[in-house]
């Protein structure tokens, strides 16, 4: 595991490169999705006025009145404005997982067992959270 620390190592540079592209695409996606939603370029599941009239309610109450996309059930409705905008937020939340998968590959190729293990465990933690196995539903 001897390496020159004076410059960022390969794993760090790979993580940075993937993160740069994933986050840049994410920002474009977030803006485009929101524009499609609020300017009515795509139909919304509920009128914006109705959601705005209930945003003082807690998430459980609002979701009871207007079920919001949760878990992964929203995927078939992605061509609705609100769902597209929601999916852009999901994308941002998945960005770190993509970067970790890339860096785990570098650690494996370097035969760096400790950090391969840490990266894989971290991916598993985030995948469990993303799966909705913990705390999904209202």
């Amino acid at each position: 595991m001897s390496e020159n620390h004076a410059h960022p190592n390969k794993a760090q540079l790979v993580y940075a490169a993937v993160l740069h592209w994933v986050s840049t695409i994410g920002i474009v996606f977030v803006i485009a999705g929101f524009a499609a939603y609020v300017f009515g370029l795509l139909p919304a599941t509920y009128p914006i006025e109705e959601i705005a009239g209930s945003w003082h309610l807690g998430s459980a109450e609002l979701n009871h009145l207007y079920p919001q996309p949760t878990g992964w059930s929203w995927v078939p409705d992605i061509l609705r404005g609100d769902v597209l905008s929601f999916s852009s937020i999901v994308y941002l939340s998945a960005a770190t997982i993509v970067c970790l998968v890339a860096v785990a590959g570098v650690f494996i190729s370097e035969k760096n067992d400790i950090y391969t293990g840490i990266a894989i465990l971290q991916i598993l933690v985030l995948l469990v959270a993303a799966s909705g196995l913990i705390g999904s539903g209202h």
């Binding site: 705005a52 919001q68 937020i89």
Partner: peptide, 22 residues
């Protein structure tokens, strides 16, 4: 990394409104 983990819980609970978050 840490906020990603917590963000998924909020997403799955329907506690992220694009109208406010974006």
């Amino acid at each position: 990394i840490n906020d990603t983990a917590a963000a998924w819980v909020y997403l799955h609970k329907g506690a992220v409104l694009p109208l406010i978050a974006v």
